[in-house]
Write a protein that binds this DNA or RNA. Structure first.
Length: 485
RNA sequence: GCCGGGGUGACAGAGAGGCCAUGUGGCGGACUGCAGAUCCGCAGACAGGAGUUCAAAUCUCCUUCCCGGCUCCA
């Protein structure tokens, strides 16, 4: 079975065939660093994180490039508002971005080029476009002449005339055609700028991606990703520049992630309807946030509301419980091979789902079925320690890609049986702010003793008091287990 | 207006011609002193209208509503 992915360019799912066997050059548009990252950025990063992890799992060597737009109008404006140096501001935001994405357990890209570090390549490209006569200088700025492009709108389906009719374009008098876009912008007095053949200035928005793709990947990149909001004009213009400059196809597969929405509206800074990653992680674990995002198709919009993460937390608990219990499982039966068979089937099912355009939602559904089957074997006393280890192995493989489960063992099985404790000792232990593991064990055994004496008041008091300290006791067929929440 | 993508059970969200999606929640049952966890079962759906087909949530057409883009955006 081969992996297929949805290509925005052709609007079809296509088998993945990299230019070079086994290697993938992948460019994902990063962020403009003028303000802290919000949950929408997290969605994009986590969607592509899973894609990269899965491609690697499938044996591809992935060169993953994500850029930082660290000079542009917004950064300059924001820096001015804060009376900061724009470069200091962008560095601060980049630091925040890394902190947030690390906290979300998104793997880092291979390289994070910055516009300001790619200046020579950008200027080379602009010069090349001017030499080819497809871009022109005007008052210190350089514009790309869209009417000279061979093809226009092949990604977005837009035609030039329709777009002109849309008429929300900047009618700069420097442009020969209103649809032309800047590849180099002349600096206004006092702005940060770089020296170029056209005087002091800085890059247009789109050109950095074209230059970075060429520099870090090549004339043609296998996969180019970004949000759906970038399709037009950003990605369309990247195609125009790169293909004009390189005389080669720019991108084989375009992949776009759907927007995170709130009340059906895109989460964005300009709408002021965003939640910062910091804020969200103060209340929910990174696993819950990842699960919320990965439990939906990356291509489709995902609706967020106040209960979304609570729902995800509850839903995830089912998988986490099964995972925990499989790890803590004490062998009941020996030599059964039901678990082995179960594990053999589930992983190929899982990969089949993921091979179909990274269908993480269906892949998770496979995991739920798997957890139920494994729980059933265990409940029926047909699970050996070896079988449980195989089940845990599948969970680990799944988690290596999705990163939605807490891998540390949370569940503690109390090995010794019931043991009486006198009341004052119980109260003393329960009154501690933090009850050490050893004491929890003793309390659980004391509770067991109380239960055997049918002293349910004492038993329930121990369970209730421990629950208040964040320790959950559960009675199972194998005895009592507990975990810290 | 134009270009994309959508409208699926209480909710979140897969699926893209025939076969159970899945999860949370609800209801019933098993287990339990009670909880919880777990297991079993039940209910409940494909925006509306025409058409193609033996068969349509899935294909075609029309209507309608929503979202994204056409300005910076993941």
């Amino acid at each position: 079975m081969s992996l297929v992915l949805y290509n925005t360019l052709t609007k079809k799912k296509e088998p993945l065939q990299p230019i070079e066997d086994g290697k993938i050059g992948m460019y994902v548009c990063g962020v403009t660093v003028y303000d802290k990252s919000h949950l929408g950025h997290a969605k994009s990063a986590i969607n592509f994180d899973l894609i990269v992890r899965y491609l690697r799992h499938r044996g591809y060597e992935v060169n993953h490039i994500t850029n930082f737009t660290d000079v542009d109008d917004k950064i300059i404006q924001r820096a001015k508002e804060l009376s900061m140096d724009p470069m200091a501001l962008s560095q601060q935001i980049i630091d925040d971005y890394f902190r947030s994405m690390d906290a979300l357990k998104a793997e880092r890209a291979t390289t994070y080029p910055r516009a300001t570090e790619t200046m020579d390549d950008i200027i080379d490209m602009v010069e090349g476009l001017v030499q080819k006569g497809i871009a022109y200088e005007s008052n210190g700025s350089v514009y790309f002449s869209v009417r000279k492009a061979k093809e226009y709108g092949k990604l977005s389906g837009q035609t030039l005339d329709q777009t002109v009719a849309g008429a929300r374009i900047d009618p700069s008098e420097d442009k020969r055609d209103p649809m032309d876009f800047a590849v180099w912008k002349a600096a206004k007095p006092g702005e940060v700028s770089w020296t170029s053949p056209w005087g002091e200035g800085r890059p247009g928005w789109h050109i950095e991606c074209s230059a970075m793709c060429l520099k870090h990947i090549g004339k043609t990149v296998d996969i180019h990703g970004g949000g759906t909001d970038l399709i037009f004009p950003h990605h369309e213009n990247e195609i125009l520049q790169s293909e004009a400059y390189n005389d080669a196809q720019f991108v084989k597969y375009w992949m776009h992630n759907g927007m995170l929405t709130i009340d059906e509206e895109k989460m964005s800074k300009s709408q002021k309807n965003f939640f910062l990653i910091d804020e969200v992680l103060a209340k929910y674990s990174p696993q819950v946030v990842r699960f919320f995002i990965l439990n939906a198709n990356y291509r489709h919009p995902l609706e967020y509301d106040s209960s979304s993460l609570d729902d995800s937390q509850r839903a995830l608990e089912t998988l986490q419980n099964s995972y925990d219990e499989m790890k803590a499982h004490a062998a009941i039966a020996d030599g059964d091979d039901d678990a082995e068979r179960l594990c053999g089937d589930v992983w190929s099912d899982f990969e089949t789902k993921m091979d179909d355009d990274f269908n993480s939602r269906d892949a998770i559904a496979v995991m739920y079925d798997f957890a139920r089957e494994a729980n059933k074997l265990r409940g029926e006393g047909r699970l050996s320690r070896k079988g449980a280890d195989s089940v845990v192995g599948i969970f680990n493989q799944f988690n290596g890609l999705f990163g939605v489960l807490v891998s540390e063992s949370r569940l503690k099985l109390v090995k010794e049986g019931a043991q009486a404790l006198d009341e004052t000792e119980i109260d003393k232990m329960l009154s501690q702010d933090h009850i050490p593991d050893g004491d929890v064990d003793r309390l659980v055994r004391a509770r067991q003793d109380a239960r055997e004496r049918k002293d349910f008041a004492t038993a329930d008091n121990i369970r209730g008091s421990l629950a208040e300290k964040g320790v959950d006791i559960q009675d199972t067929q194998e005895g009592a287990v507990w975990k810290r929440k």
